[in-house]
Design a protein around this nucleic acid. Structure first.
Length: 733
DNA sequence: TATCGAATAT
DNA sequence: CATATTCGAT
C-alpha cells in the first residue's frame, strides 16, 4: 500500500523524525539511541520520565514520537503514557524486557501505539514512523482498515475502531454503532474501559457552528436534517449523530428566540434592522447628526441607514434586546444557552431550573434577576455612580430599552412620528423601485428590512408617495413581517413586555467591593494611582432604600424582582449573542452588500448596550489607565481589532473605554476622523451615556433611570412613598 | 455541587 | 429522525 506522508511527502520523512527516548537504564537508552540514529531519526534521550514530560510540555511540537520504557523508578512508564495521552497527541511506544501478554496489553490499552520487547532490534525501530503518519492523518486509517500493514496490525487487533484509535483529539475515537461491525465487541468494550486517553468529543467551535448554521440556512430550518447538514458541511470526522445532537440544541435555541420575541427565527432580521434604524433615528434626533466615518464609509455614505455591516448591527452586540440571566458560573458558549453573566454572586443561590428535557433547561424566573446598566445595579444608581458592583444582568437594560423606545424613540409609533423619514426614512425612493409589468414596484433590498430574496414587490397603490418622491412600503408587503406592519400602529407591533406583576423572590448580594472614595459627588478611583480621572456623578436616586446607612453604596440583600421569564430566554456569558449575529450573516448578506458603513453613535449611546457585561470597574480601570503618548497602551484591549479594522491607523495611547471596544465592531462605533480615533469624541459619548443613564432633569417620563425603575416596580417613587427596598427586607409593591 | 454540551438510547 | 436520557466533564 502506498503510504502518504502528508506534509512530509515532499521531504525525506521518516528521515529526521524526532523521537524522544526515555529509559532509566543508561545502557538500554544508549542502545536505543544508536538504533534510532541508525534509522536516521533525530533522537533525544532522557533517563527520567519527569524530564521527558517537561520537555514534551514545553515543546510538544518538537517531537513526533515517544519511546518509553515501562519500568522506571520515579515515574512509571504507564504514568508517562497516560499523561502524554491526556495532554498531547503524540504516538507513544512502550518497551520493556517484560514480554508478558498482560503487560503488553496494558500498554496498548492505555494508549500506547506499539509495544516493543527488549532487546529492541533495528527492525523494530525501522518502522515506527508509521505511527506518526497514522496519528497525523486520521482519515488515512479508514483506508488502512484491513490492510496488512504490520505496524497497523498490532494496534488494530486490539481495537474495533482501529481506524480511529489515536485520532486527534477532536475526532471521535469510537462509536457504539460500530458494534455491528462484526468484530469482537467484548474485547473492545474492555479496551474502552481501560483506555486512559481522553475521550474525544466533537467540539463545536464558532467556526464549525457557523458552517453548521450556514448549512441549516441553506436547507431551510424545517428541512435541515442531520444527514443533509453533514453533507453540506463536509466535515469528514463528524457523524450524523454529532450533527443531530448539535441540531437538537440549536433548535432549542431557536425556540427560545421565538418564544422571546413571538417571532419565528427568520423574522428576526426585520426586527433587528428596525431596531437599528430606530437607534439611528434616535441618535439623529438627539444629536442632529450621524457620525459618518470617512475612514470606513464607502462612496454612498449618504445612506445613513445602511450600516448593517457592523458587527454590532449584526447582532454580536447591542441591538439585540439584552438579556436577563440564569445565574450560574460562566462557561463558554456558542450563544445557544440560557445562561449568562459569569460569576454572578447569585450563582450559589439558585438551583437548576426545571428540566423539561435535559437539553432544554427552560429558565425558571427564580433563576433570573434583572439588573441595571452595565456593571451597575440599583446600588450604583442609588449613589449616582455607574460603578461596578457584583450585580450584573441585563434584564433591566432590556426593560429600560423598551421604555425608552416607547417614550423616546417611538418604538410603538406611527409612521408619521419618524420625522427623519423625510430625508432618509424607511421609504424607498421611486427611482429605486423599478416598476414592474404588473404595476408593482420592486423595492431594492437595502431599503427594506427583510428582503432576503433581494427585493419585494410593492404594489404601487399601497405605497403612498412621500414628499420626497419615495414610497412608503407597508409592512404587509414585507414577506417576513406577516403579523405586523413595519411602520405599524402600536397595537400591531408585538413588543414583548415582562410580566411585571409576578415577582418571584431572588436573593441579591450586596456589592462586595467599594472601590470608590467619595468626595462630594465625585468618585475617585484610588486604584488608579496618579490617574486624575474621576467619574462625575450626575444623579442622585430616589431609591433611598438602596443607600447604605453610612452612605456607601449598598445593594438590596433581598428584593422582589419582576418576573422576567420572558426575557430570560437567551443570554450569553459575555452579554453578547455571538452566534445570533452569525446566523443572521447569511440572510443579511443581501442587505449588507448593498450597504454603506456608517459610524453612528455607538450602542452605548442608546439603551441597547447598557446591559453589557463588561464591568464598569474593569472598564474604568482600563479606560483611565493612562499610557505613555508613544505607543499603544497594553491595557487597552482590542488594539488588534482596531488596527485590523483600520490598517495603518495610529492609535494614540489615550484612555480607551473598554466597553466601547467590546461593544461591537469598530466599524460601528468608533468616531473616526482623519484616520485617527477622536478621543474627545469617545469621551463625549461616554459622558453622554452616563448622563443618559442618570439624568434626572429630562422631560417627564422620558426615561430617567428612576422613572424606569419606578415603572418597573409599579411604584411611584417620585411621590416620595419612601424606600421600598431595604436590607433584608422584601419589597412589596 | 449543579448543570453544561455532547453522546447515546429510545 | 426527533426526542429523551445518559455521560463525562467542570
Amino acid at each position: 500500500m502506498a503510504e502518504t506522508h502528508g506534509t512530509e511527502a515532499a521531504g525525506k520523512f521518516p528521515e529526521g523524525m524526532r523521537v524522544l527516548a526515555v529509559d532509566d537504564n543508561p545502557v538500554c537508552l544508549m542502545l536505543l539511541e544508536t538504533l534510532l540514529r541508525r534509522c536516521k531519526y533525530h533522537a533525544t534521550t532522557t533517563r527520567d520520565a519527569e524530564t521527558a514530560l517537561r520537555m514534551l510540555r514545553e515543546r510538544t511540537e518538537d517531537f513526533d514520537l515517544v519511546i518509553s520504557d515501562v519500568h522506571m523508578l520515579e515515574m512509571d512508564g504507564f504514568r508517562l503514557l497516560e499523561l502524554i495521552g491526556l495532554e498531547m497527541d503524540l504516538p507513544v511506544i512502550m518497551q520493556s524486557a517484560n514480554g508478558e501478554l498482560e503487560t503488553m496489553m496494558k500498554g496498548v490499552t492505555h494508549g500506547a501505539c506499539d509495544y516493543l520487547v527488549k532487546p529492541v532490534q533495528l527492525k523494530d525501530i525501522k518502522n515506527i514512523w508509521q505511527h506518526v503518519v497514522r496519528k497525523r492523518k486520521p482519515d488515512l486509517r479508514s483506508h488502512n482498515r484491513g490492510d496488512n500493514d504490520s505496524a497497523d496490525q498490532k494496534v488494530q487487533s486490539g481495537n474495533a475502531e482501529g481506524g480511529r484509535v489515536g485520532a486527534t483529539r477532536t475526532r471521535r475515537k469510537y462509536s457504539r454503532k460500530k458494534r455491528s461491525d462484526g468484530d469482537n465487541y467484548d474485547g473492545n468494550k474492555e479496551n474502552m474501559e481501560f483506555s486512559t486517553q481522553k475521550r474525544t468529543r466533537v467540539v463545536w467551535t464558532a467556526d464549525l457552528h457557523r458552517d453548521f448554521v450556514e448549512a441549516v440556512n441553506q436547507l431551510g430550518v424545517d428541512n435541515a436534517v442531520p444527514k443533509k447538514i453533514l453533507q453540506i458541511m463536509k466535515v469528514n470526522y463528524m457523524t450524523r449523530e454529532n450533527i443531530a445532537s448539535h441540531l437538537q440544541k440549536y433548535r432549542l435555541y431557536l425556540k427560545r428566540i421565538s418564544d422571546y420575541t413571538g417571532m419565528s427565527p427568520d423574522q428576526f432580521p426585520a426586527r433587528w434592522r428596525y431596531m437599528n434604524e430606530l437607534q439611528c433615528l434616535k441618535n439623529y434626533h438627539e444629536h442632529g447628526r450621524y457620525h459618518l466615518s470617512p475612514a470606513i464609509a464607502s462612496s454612498n455614505s449618504s445612506n445613513p441607514f445602511a450600516r448593517m455591516n457592523s458587527a454590532s448591527a449584526m447582532g454580536t452586540h447591542g441591538l439585540l434586546p439584552t438579556q436577563s440571566v440564569q445565574l450560574r458560573n460562566s462557561k463558554s458558549s456558542l450563544g445557544m444557552r440560557t445562561v449568562g453573566h459569569g460569576g454572578s454572586p447569585l450563582s450559589h443561590a439558585v438551583s437548576e431550573p426545571l428540566r423539561y428535557s435535559s437539553n432544554s433547561r427552560l429558565p425558571h424566573a427564580r433563576n433570573c434577576f434583572p439588573s441595571g446598566p452595565s456593571g451597575s445595579s440599583l446600588a450604583n444608581i442609588s449613589n449616582g455612580s455607574v460603578l461596578d458592583t457584583n450585580y450584573s444582568s441585563n434584564s433591566y437594560a432590556d426593560m429600560f430599552c423598551k421604555k425608552l423606545w416607547e417614550t423616546n424613540c417611538g418604538f410603538l409609533a406611527h409612521a408619521n412620528q419618524f420625522s427623519v423619514q423625510s430625508n432618509c426614512g424607511f421609504s424607498a425612493l421611486a427611482n429605486q423601485c423599478p416598476e414592474q409589468s404588473n404595476g408593482e414596484f420592486l423595492a431594492p433590498a437595502s431599503r427594506f428590512p427583510v428582503q432576503l430574496n433581494g427585493g419585494v414587490l410593492v404594489p404601487a397603490n399601497q405605497c403612498p408617495v412621500q414628499s420626497n418622491g419615495g414610497f412608503l412600503a407597508p409592512a404587509n408587503q414585507l414577506p417576513v413581517q406577516s403579523n405586523c406592519r413595519f411602520l405599524a400602529p402600536a397595537d400591531q407591533f408585538p413588543v414583548q413586555y415582562p410580566d411585571l406583576n409576578n415577582h418571584p423572590l431572588v436573593q441579591m448580594n450586596p456589592p462586595s467591593t467599594n472601590l470608590l472614595s467619595t468626595v462630594g459627588n465625585t468618585h475617585h478611583f484610588p486604584d488608579l494611582g496618579n490617574c486624575s480621572k474621576s467619574w462625575q456623578t450626575t444623579a442622585p436616586s430616589m431609591f433611598h432604600g438602596l443607600y447604605h446607612k453610612d452612605g456607601t453604596s449598598l445593594g438590596p440583600s433581598q428584593t422582589s424582582i419582576p418576573n422576567i421569564n420572558q426575557l430570560s430566554n437567551f443570554a450569553t456569558s459575555s452579554g453578547q449573542v455571538l452566534m445570533f449575529g452569525n446566523e443572521l450573516h447569511g440572510p443579511m448578506s443581501t442587505i449588507m452588500s448593498d450597504s454603506t458603513s456608517v459610524t453612528d453613535f455607538n450602542e452605548q449611546m442608546g439603551p441597547f448596550n447598557i446591559g453589557n457585561n463588561t464591568s464598569s470597574t474593569e472598564m474604568l480601570h482600563r479606560s483611565f489607565t493612562l499610557g505613555s503618548n508613544s505607543s499603544i497602551s497594553p491595557t487597552i484591549p482590542s488594539d488588534s481589532s482596531i488596527s485590523s479594522t483600520f490598517p495603518g491607523l495610529q492609535v494614540d495611547s489615550f484612555a480607551m473605554p473598554t466597553q466601547m471596544l467590546n461593544g461591537g465592531d469598530t466599524n460601528g462605533i468608533f468616531p473616526v476622523l482623519s484616520d485617527t480615533i477622536d478621543q474627545q469624541d469617545i469621551f463625549d459619548q461616554l459622558d453622554d451615556n452616563n448622563g443618559f443613564l442618570t439624568r434626572t432633569n429630562g422631560p417627564e417620563g422620558t426615561g430617567t433611570l428612576d422613572d424606569i425603575v419606578a415603572g418597573l416596580f409599579n411604584h411611584d417613587f417620585a411621590k416620595g412613598d419612601g424606600a421600598v427596598v431595604d436590607e433584608g427586607q422584601e419589597f412589596v409593591p
